[in-house]
């Protein structure tokens, strides 16, 4: 079963109450599933970078088993507004 960008977006939006999610399929010829995500969630407030990434990893634990490469950027709504 291939993991889709839409599926990842839906899950992150629901589980992490993300206000903004970018999912980019970075699959090359070699890999079947590679994704780059940007998650903006108020749940990241007061959390360290490692804690935030762990939250995303936990949310996508099942999907990550299928995913070959995974890049993530995690921002709070305030950090997102500044960019």
């Amino acid at each position: 079963m291939a993991v889709t960008a839409d599926h990842i977006r839906t899950k992150l939006t629901k589980d992490l109450e993300a206000v903004h999610v970018d999912v980019e399929d970075t699959t090359s010829n070699r890999c079947t599933t590679s994704f780059k995500v940007l998650v903006v969630s108020p749940q990241f407030n007061g959390k360290s970078l490692l804690q935030r990434h762990r939250m995303v990893n936990t949310c996508l634990a099942e999907e990550l088993k299928e995913i070959h490469a995974f890049e993530q950027k995690t921002l709070t709504p305030e950090q997102w507004d500044k960019q």
Partner: peptide, 10 residues
């Protein structure tokens, strides 16, 4: 544990 590539890059 510090993190993966993304965390080190940030």
């Amino acid at each position: 544990f510090v993190g993966g590539c993304d965390i080190l890059l940030q």
